[in-house]
Write a protein that binds this DNA or RNA. Structure first.
Lengths: 199, 199, 199, 199
DNA sequence: AATTAATCGAGACGGTACGTCGTGTCTTAAA
DNA sequence: TTTAAGACACGACGTACCGTCTCGATTAATT
């Protein structure tokens, strides 16, 4: 995994980059996030510390790089109903966050609380995902499924908030269908507002 | 704040406890959360490190202690409508989180991501707040304001999620009325679902 | 071993004293000298730290107390010749220093290097032993065995020095007969100065 | 003594080494041996604790390094007689041990009693000095001054023992001529064994 | 072809914080 | 007054990382 690498001249060595990111992932899997020090990554990747700091000036930057290396989630299922779409979105997201590299995300949020650079990167990423999520609501609006009272952005934010909360309190096994229902039921044109099951 | 304190026998000295918590608050206000090391707190409080670790075994435990020392937010406004109540709740909470000691909460959430003890304490606290928040919805249900389709707990969770999201991305200045409207509009019996303003 | 003991009124409790000294010996046997802290002794003896400090103000004082509790070595063999007497003395002493409580002595010497109180106690003890050792030479002088050129005290000091050196460099298994011969041969009236075996 | 020093690459910085040893000497001179903590040395030398522990893993190792930095005592006087040589040796040694850096030696012996690494280093040093001291006796033997009964090594050990004893009981002001006489008188061919002064 | 310049692994450096341990002092409550 | 108990302020322990640095080597692009 860690053969000798040297400079390839006056430019960045992609093998080194890969070795570093791989090492970071491996460390988090083995020791948890608290084991992820720059020192440990350098050691494991057989990279010089200066090399690390040259390309990832902070631990948060390294974290973001690892997280973003994975390809974006391509798209979300189109089930034909908003409630189904939202439930599908949550399912996809929760199972993504449950995988080794996805697990990092909660730590990125944590890091952002004390590191402005991470916060900025996270915010950019979040806005991007928010836009992507909004499309789901636009689709429903186009279908005429939506009572237009609530802006798409607000609804997307509510869904994202629900997702983050469950990530941060380690409840990724929660009932996504229930969540979708609780959020969506009111936004959609009333078919069944009266037949509600009290609980 | 930092007079000499000694043992008062084989039992905890409340003066020491106060000095430590005061020191922690002062440090966070002056240096930010990254300045809050056990070392620094001990130094500032003129307390031995052993004393700190005796009563607050982790940084997270200390954080929770500081946060919980402040008296609970007494109650939330009763505005007569659910939407008003929710908006009031968010206002109260956001202004609380904006004050020096309230600022700590986001760091407690961050700490919980890597420390099981903090996570446990946070979860207990969260359930407590959730129950308190649910009362708001029970009140609305008693008024007959609520379409009974959605359990109170689910609605409370959605509101809490919205609040946490805005805390964690540093948007405590966001439009709470809008948030309340986005969430509540659908849960309530439809008076005005048709007159929505599209976006 | 460590039943409950309490105050027996306004005077020293001999049970406590015994428990403390026993604990000290046990600790040194189990953990070595570096494990012998006042803290550890108090813990093991189930004694209060204040009690310890009241009666043995320093670690060195405790060490001396443990060492001196053992009864003095009664006397040394009278073999009829000085060389035999000295060899016997060294044998007795080395086997004493090899036993658990005897092992402490090297640590007392070590402690004396940095603690004036211990140094003083050790010096008193040493003068006492020196006087006792001198008797051995007086006996030889009385027998007419000694060429009177050298004061008894000087000879005793030389023998003691040899013993200490071997203790301090952990060579208690060395050839005591050889030592005795090397020291004594020249002090005695010349019977055999010519027949020496070079080596 | 405490200018800024930094790494000079992946190898030991001799300036740092000098600063540390200087600091150690200064501390012992000012505060005595009990003030010589690794912490204090690092502080005074403006060196990181890790740097200290990298090169001197124990306090004893540091002590040995300080002691050995001084150049060896070049040679011992050749007075023409063994007794004179031994007295000269003791004089030289005692005055060396009385100087600031020489004072350390008793603490090295003390440290060796509880630290195997120091004991080992000390033993190597001691064997070296013993060999050097033996030459003095070989010289006397070559002059025919010595009754060959006693091995040179045994005599050297006796002289060393005498020296150590006086060091350890803080009697470096003792009469070295008397010591030399007491030890040597018997080893030499009897010229004057009869005219001894009784005591 | 020789030179320049950025990169690489390596690891020492001065620091800070960690969490633990021992020190000697103190107070309590019981005997 | 002594006892066991143990909290307290203090400070050293030895370890781990931090972010900076200097080195000697490697290699591509520039002279």
């Amino acid at each position: 995994m860690t053969e000798r690498r040297a400079s390839i001249g006056a430019r960045r060595n992609p093998e080194t980059e890969a070795a570093v990111l791989d090492a970071a992932v491996a460390i988090v899997e083995e020791k948890g996030i608290s084991g992820l020090s720059m020192e440990a990554v350098a050691r494991r990747a057989r990279a010089g510390k200066a090399t690390l700091y040259r390309w990832w000036p902070t631990r948060g930057a390294l974290l973001m790089a690892v997280y973003q290396r994975q390809k974006r989630i391509a798209g979300y299922p189109d089930t034909g109903t908003l409630e189904g779409d939202v439930a599908g979105f949550l399912d996809t997201l929760f199972s993504h966050w449950s995988r080794p590299e996805g697990r990092l995300f909660r730590h990125i949020i944590a890091a952002a609380q004390g590191d402005a650079d991470v916060a900025e990167a996270l915010e950019a990423y979040r806005q991007d995902r928010l836009a992507s999520l909004s499309e789901l609501f636009e689709r429903a609006r186009a279908r005429g499924e939506l009572s237009a009272a609530v802006p798409s952005g607000d609804m997307a934010r509510a869904v994202m908030a629900m997702a983050w909360l469950h990530l941060l309190v380690d409840r990724l096994d929660a009932d996504t269908a229930g969540m979708a229902r609780a959020l969506v039921r009111g936004w959609t044109v009333s078919r069944g507002a009266g037949e509600a099951r009290p609980q």
